[in-house]
Design a protein around this nucleic acid. Structure first.
Lengths: 201, 201
DNA sequence: AATGTTATTCTACGAGCGTGGAATTATCAA
DNA sequence: TTGATAATTCCACGCTCGTAGAATAACATT
């Protein structure tokens, strides 16, 4: 119980990083409005004032903390180049990998939970994620209506993450990886390469 | 501007219903923690006390207000019986219908937004929706691993609603109905009737 | 007409929120 | 060794929250 009273701590404790970790966890588990500065501070064993000292405001903290756990500009070209065969499957395996890692999964659920609120900060995050994710994805889809196809893929990815890790639907939690990969792979192939419907006009 | 001062209003104003509508809208647009009793009251042009008078607490109000905009026990048997051909397509058209109607769409986004929070009430809603929706759906899928298939379908439905109406991804907003119906129909067919991967063990 | 019941508002309590000023202590530069 | 700077806590402000007590006005029942 060494609850120090005041002033700077002796060296060695990377408080800033501790705050970031705590904030990322809180935002990921409770969403933006459900997360309080004081709760983050408590988790990080730190005075709330320290957070505003480092990051300014709650919104700025949020914007600092939330980032995609992979680089779309690098990942999508890698995944979507090469033979058409197994394309959807490769994408599915990649997504499942991301969701398997607890740390990156938390970031994803955090973004989802935060994006679900109507706060100004959330809108900003929504825009940022959509642009940074959908644009590179669409650029490598290589078919007609790439934005539509990319958006449909993203919708299934978000839906899977939501159902599996936010709602925690039992059948999705307990499903074997190979099963999910197979189904998702096929679905992604539909979105990537399926023909468009005939237009009537 | 006849802001009456106190006491019961002259007849004709169905205040209770007004509150329900306002609450449904607020919850749908701001999620559970982001919605305040006072905001609902303001929208309904009513004193906050009236809400607790009618509904007890915020949680009870939420539970009262939130319900699926369709009856799964009735709808799924209807949609999923009959010839296998066009099965996924019928399901897709039905989902798009629900999302096209502003009122039922609001209920859906409301449930999604609320389910994204970690509040106790949200967990309760999550359970209720999952049970009431997934069980009847799985019962009429009529293939191997029905719970898994039903859950995957639900994940795509939720993902579509989230991407299209919460995040408001442009390509999904502007897509023509026929395009979405075609893609979703195929995907639902994959989930409904696609073969399972071979097991290795 | 009298009485009870229900709808409605005013007011307010205690709690928790984000945030900022000021004091205190450790580290760093000279 | 001294002085500057950064990290850290304490405290407090003003606000908003959910909720409840009490007063009042319209309706319902007799």
């Amino acid at each position: 119980m060494t609850s120090h009273t005041r002033g700077r701590r002796p060296a060695g404790s990377d408080t800033r990083e501790t705050i970031i970790l705590a904030a990322r966890k809180r935002f990921s588990e409770h969403g933006y409005p459900g997360t309080t500065m004081r709760a983050i501070a408590a988790d990080a064993e730190v005075d709330p004032r320290l957070i505003t000292h480092f990051f300014g405001s709650k919104q700025e903290l949020f914007a600092t903390v939330v980032e995609l756990p992979f680089n779309p500009e690098v990942v999508f070209p890698m995944l979507l180049s090469g033979s058409d065969d197994g394309l959807g499957r490769r994408l599915a395996e990649f997504i499942l990998n991301i969701l398997e890692n607890p740390q990156s999964r938390n970031v994803i659920t955090g973004i989802i939970r935060a994006a679900a609120s109507e706060d100004a900060a959330a809108a900003q995050i929504r825009d940022r994620v959509v642009v940074r994710m959908l644009t590179p994805l669409a650029e490598h889809v290589g078919a007609d209506r790439p934005e539509l196809r990319a958006s449909l893929i993203a919708s299934q990815v978000v839906g899977l993450a939501f159902a599996r890790h936010v709602v925690e639907v039992p059948a999705l939690r307990s499903a074997e990886r190979a099963e999910l990969a197979t189904f998702l792979g096929r679905v992604f192939d539909v979105y990537l390469r399926g023909p468009l419907p005939p237009v009537d006009g």
